[in-house]
Design a binder for these strands. Structure first.
Length: 105
DNA sequence: GCGTTGACTATTG
DNA sequence: TCAATAGCCAACG
């Protein structure tokens, strides 16, 4: 609406099925901004309103390495990990996700 | 319209 | 494999 890029990002994230995760670069590329627009995707999700956050699975969006890009002691990171585990996603001992199994093609 | 910021990615050492 | 640096894009002030 206001910004096609933002709405497009929200739409793509909403299309991610439960039990799957995607990376910022993948969404950025699908949004039409290119892999370099990954930072803009983070900006869009950071500006994600609360009412939008409930219908947009932002927690299924992780870094290209399958790890959460929040602070390890951040409440958002804890909530994200909890939601991902609730959807059946397992974390490695290093705290990373196996994109080969949970990655969204 | 310019400069800064950011939930990133890819490349190099 | 890990750490540090550069680059790109979009929104905000």
């Amino acid at each position: 609406m206001s910004s096609g890029f933002f709405e497009r990002v929200y739409r793509l994230v909403s299309q991610v099925p439960a039990g799957r995760v995607t990376s910022y670069g993948a969404i950025a590329r699908e949004a039409g901004g290119g892999a370099a627009a990954a930072r803009s995707v983070g900006w869009a999700l950071r500006a994600l309103p609360i009412d939008r956050a409930e219908r947009v699975p932002w927690w299924r969006v992780v870094s290209a390495k399958g790890e959460i890009r929040f602070a390890p002691n951040s409440p958002e990171a804890e909530a994200q990990r909890a939601r991902l585990e609730a959807e059946g996603i397992r974390f490695e001992t290093t705290g990373r996700i196996d994109l080969a199994r949970f990655g969204w093609p």
